[in-house]
């Protein structure tokens, strides 16, 4: 096994503040999404337009909850990654870098799963919207 170089510490020192910033912003974004979901459940009009049906509202709430869930996970991974980078930079112990890189892996894995879920949900919603439009058009004729 090759020894770690001091250059790794220098680069990680540059990564840490940006990762922490992004992690905190993800928590803020999750909080705003949660407020939007609560607003919709209380009958507000942020996610709920006067034209939307109860099924559309429930779908918007469901997607909002999924969004909050993933944003919390991603925010947690990034903040934990930044904290572990801090431990490694301060102490220089390789075990801290192991934990940091593991958290980094979890962040990108969660991001990938989130992206796949988002794309699949988008495709399903497009298909449903097309089917509803087709049914409406067929009914009109």
């Amino acid at each position: 096994m090759e020894p770690l170089s001091p250059a790794v510490v220098t680069v990680l020192r540059g990564i840490q503040p940006w990762v922490r910033f992004s992690g905190v912003l993800l928590f803020v974004s999750a909080l705003l999404s949660l407020l939007a979901v609560i607003d919709a459940l209380l009958g507000g009009n942020y996610l709920n337009t006067p034209q939307s049906t109860s099924e559309e509202l429930m779908l918007a709430v469901l997607l909002g909850v999924v969004n909050v869930f993933f944003e919390c996970i991603l925010g947690y991974c990034l903040v934990a990654y930044a904290i572990r980078i801090g431990h490694f930079v301060n102490n220089g112990v390789a075990a801290d870098l192991e934990r940091a890189l593991n958290m980094h892996r979890q962040f990108w894995k969660s991001s990938g799963i989130y992206a796949i879920v988002f794309i699949v949900a988008m495709v399903i919603m497009m298909v449903i919207a097309m089917m509803l439009a087709f049914a409406k058009y067929s009914g009109a004729n």
């Binding site: 020894p3 220089g92 192991e98 890189l101 892996r105 990938g112």
Partner: peptide
């Protein structure tokens, strides 16, 4: 001046191996 101790361990390599396909996807 960085007092770094230790090697690139198997755990680090495995973490990076697990990261690669997801970063490629994104």
């Amino acid at each position: 001046v960085n007092n770094v101790s230790g090697n690139i361990s198997d755990a680090m390599i495995e973490s990076l191996r697990g990261t690669k396909p997801w970063t490629m996807l994104i």
